[in-house]
Design a protein around this nucleic acid. Sequence first.
DNA 1: TGCTTCAATCTAAGCGCATAAGTAGCCCGA
DNA 2: TCGGGCTACTTATGCGCTTAGATTGAAGCA
Lengths: 373, 373
Amino acid sequence: MNRKPTVYDVAERAGVSIATVSFAFRRPDQIRESTRKAVLAAAHEIGYIPSASARGLARGQTGALGMYSFEMLLGRPQRSEVADAENDILRDLDITDSMIPWDEADEDLLADARAFPLYVDEVQRGFELECKSHGRPLLLTSGSGDEAAIAETAGRVDGLAIFPGSSGAEALERVALNMPVVLFSVPQAEDSHHHVVVDNLGGMRELVSHLVLDHGKARLGFVGGRTVADFSERFDAFRSALTELGIPAPDEVLDDTALGDGRGFGRVIAAVEAEELPDALVCASDQTALAVLDLLAARGVRVPDDVLVTGFDGIFAGRVSRPSLTTVRQPMETMGRVAARLLMEETQSASEAPRVVRLATRLIRRGSCGCGI
Amino acid sequence: MNRKPTVYDVAERAGVSIATVSFAFRRPDQIRESTRKAVLAAAHEIGYIPSASARGLARGQTGALGMYSFEMLLGRPQRSEVADAENDILRDLDITDSMIPWDEADEDLLADARAFPLYVDEVQRGFELECKSHGRPLLLTSGSGDEAAIAETAGRVDGLAIFPGSSGAEALERVALNMPVVLFSVPQAEDSHHHVVVDNLGGMRELVSHLVLDHGKARLGFVGGRTVADFSERFDAFRSALTELGIPAPDEVLDDTALGDGRGFGRVIAAVEAEELPDALVCASDQTALAVLDLLAARGVRVPDDVLVTGFDGIFAGRVSRPSLTTVRQPMETMGRVAARLLMEETQSASEAPRVVRLATRLIRRGSCGCGI
DNA sequence: TGCTTCAATCTAAGCGCATAAGTAGCCCGA
DNA sequence: TCGGGCTACTTATGCGCTTAGATTGAAGCA
């Protein structure tokens, strides 16, 4: 690992100036074919790799797009758990050329759909694919959401996509002064970011209509904390959908357990024990619904016989759960793609007014409402 | 989007030199508390975001790790398909504040386990998690594997993890002169990279023993192209395992269809039609096995009744296929983590000799060998 | 031949930060 | 009172690249 070759080394070897070296790479048409080849050959011979840092500095932009996640997001493994797993690996890594024993932590269970391709993963995948197809490097980072952590990331990219987090709104505003920012959540306050969101209203209306008109249920309860902006919008949609159907809508959610809460659905449990469950539990997300499904199964409540349960998102785990989960599917991959496009468009042209791009959803009827297994 | 604030702006506002600004961020202890606060406040006020390019240039390293994928990898969607999907999105994106209609391409099928959490995704996830837990930005890129594409990525990172690709070996050698490189494949030729691999020999031996001793099968055929290094190692392991059990091993694979091949298992099909299928088809990977399962089902061959089928990898899709897939599971997430650790260790200390870290595997018995559904 | 034109290349000036080396101011002891 | 030793800063330089503008040389033309 000697000193990395630079343009100067290439220039010297090819007998040209460093500007010509640069042109050979960035402006092939402004330079004679023969010199270009000579430069490229020289670069090849000494193993020259252009420094993105230097280029970024000179150009004023990095060319990369970023995707920032908050730690402790949506029920993901926490740092401490992760750190534990690391220690095992670290210990074994000291041994060269050896066999690292089977990691019990990587039991087949880890391939569980409940853990991996979650909502954020599918959106991220769309973002990745879009970046790839445009040759844009993608920088993935995560942090606590404090100013330093976000700035650390923002300093490396030309545009930033963010999953909504509990904090960091102010820091994000500051980032948005310098580059386009897109959030995957409904706008809460006034902000200067783009938003990629789904049609919570339409999706919820379709879902509620199905439960009410097709399944003849009238007593519906909503499960989900209003602290998450999209959950809140879904609850509002839930209420207006009921009202449209002439059914009195509850003023409050049945249970406000949100994802990642340590607390676990105390109000749902209480309703089970008091035998006061509504006809259907409309959950704010699939992950919430799957947890509810577990909870009900553990208490002997049958779904969909005793109560219907529905989710929202359409993550993969809902397809393979028993019963499979009736839900409103978001086009998650498309959302990721749209976000990437928004950033790329704005990176190239002048800054534009913040956009809110809303994508249609679709009702997926499955077992947990009685429409499948 | 005004000109981005720099250290100079912060220094001016705080009434100090730019060195002090830099110290305020990077060497908090070398500076008086009051000054530090003043600088941080000034930075905060004008929305200063440190430029990673400038820092990287000054320091000689970027701090980020990279993961490079070859386009057209392991049966992933090709660029053309992706491009088509984009066009749809692009068209709709011109509409501000509108509703983007449901994308038929994002049918529920797209949440299919066959498409998404593949081998590479799980490894990538481990890499991501490890980067996250160490606060290291992760740069994801992909390209054709030519020198320019790899250099483009290599110029941005301090270390690079690579999935084995058909090309680019020479370019990689050149990259390895400048930074640590780790490959997820068994070493083919002499190279100066680290390798994170699994115990193909032990895994295959366990699998073959199971088929032979527990299921009493003696006529085993191997499906997989030897062009993929790990597949080739698995075939060798397959043969030696049979030999150890006193069973004559085939000299050649039954069918050399590799992943991503346009061709489709011509030899397997021929064997089906000639009614000359062996007792068991040992496939080089899960994706191969799943394709074989489809193929057999389409031709009325029953698994495991008429023939056993096994995979290798332990991807999620094998759990939800019918029949579910007997396979040798690799600790994919751990592999990703180990790769990240190797890079981080070497980034910090001096360069070391290339390592080959081999991880143990585990046999997962499921329906396709008759052990489950 | 002398002049213009133009393509090919070079010169030189940053880009924003880190940091080695220098300096000012202060406290302290003799 | 003065010098030494610190701390807390500043000055000055360079990291490797891009790019506007200067330069060169050859071709084109009257």
